[in-house]
């Protein structure tokens, strides 16, 4: 292998090596099957909420619980995939991926509380009494969640395969659509977004990138 090449400098050669290795290791930890599981879970939850017609607060609680389960599923999927490829550096890349997502998740939690009108002064009261959520307020949440998730995935996917960034952009698109068309059924939009997109992109990743 010749290192003294007129085609590009040593610095550029090192850059190619570093970037390729980072991109290569970055994609392998993304768990396609776990993503499909998250999509399936979202489909079931959205379907049940639509079918049962629960109260708005139950609707919010159900999705918060679903998000927590989805995070655990994702973490488990990354762990399994890292074990499958048997590469110690994957753990480091996975940590970076989660660190990329974490701030957006925290901000989403705070924005959700803000939208629901929860403050440090009234949270006890909200927890102890019947919590009335107006429909107009509830309608904001699916759009907010999809936009924030889309933003997080796009950012975390910047050093990964195209499919991850594409999924992030798709979430942003559906989030905008949900916001612009308020008369849309919110359960349907959650089904399309968190259900459909996870299923489609999870399948693509699982098929192309080894699980």
């Amino acid at each position: 292998m010749e290192h003294q090449s007129s085609e590009f400098s040593v610095e550029e050669q090192l850059k190619v090596i570093r970037e390729t290795m980072t991109r290569t290791t970055a994609f392998t930890e993304i768990p396609g099957f776990a993503m499909m599981g998250i999509g399936l879970l979202a489909l079931v939850v959205a379907g049940l909420l639509e079918y049962t017609g629960t109260s708005y607060i139950t609707w919010v609680e159900a999705w918060v619980l679903t998000a927590l389960i989805a995070i655990l599923l994702g973490a488990w999927g990354i762990h399994l995939k890292a074990r499958k490829v048997e590469k110690p550096h994957i753990a480091q890349t996975a940590r970076k991926f989660w660190l990329g997502l974490a701030p957006a998740f925290v901000v989403t939690a705070f924005l959700t509380l803000m939208v629901l009108g929860v403050t440090p002064h009234n949270y006890q009261e909200k927890l102890n009494t019947y919590w009335f959520i107006p429909l107009d307020v509830l309608r904001i949440l699916p759009s907010l969640w999809m936009l924030m998730y889309g933003l997080a995935i796009s950012a975390a996917g910047a050093y990964s395969i195209k499919a991850v960034s594409q999924m992030g952009l798709s979430f942003l698109g559906i989030g905008v659509m949900t916001f612009l068309i308020p008369e849309m059924n919110i359960n349907l939009m959650m089904m399309i977004g968190f259900g459909g997109l996870h299923l489609i992109f999870g399948w693509v990743i699982a098929k192309r990138y080894g699980g």
Partner: peptide, 28 residues
């Protein structure tokens, strides 16, 4: 060494095996 060939070798150095599609997407 050519940029693409260096990219292929670098990618395969950290992965036991990669498919044509993955390599193509990875290297653009």
């Amino acid at each position: 060494m050519d940029r693409v060939r260096l990219g292929i070798i670098s990618a395969l150095a950290v992965n036991e095996e990669l498919s044509f599609v993955v390599l193509r997407e990875l290297l653009g």
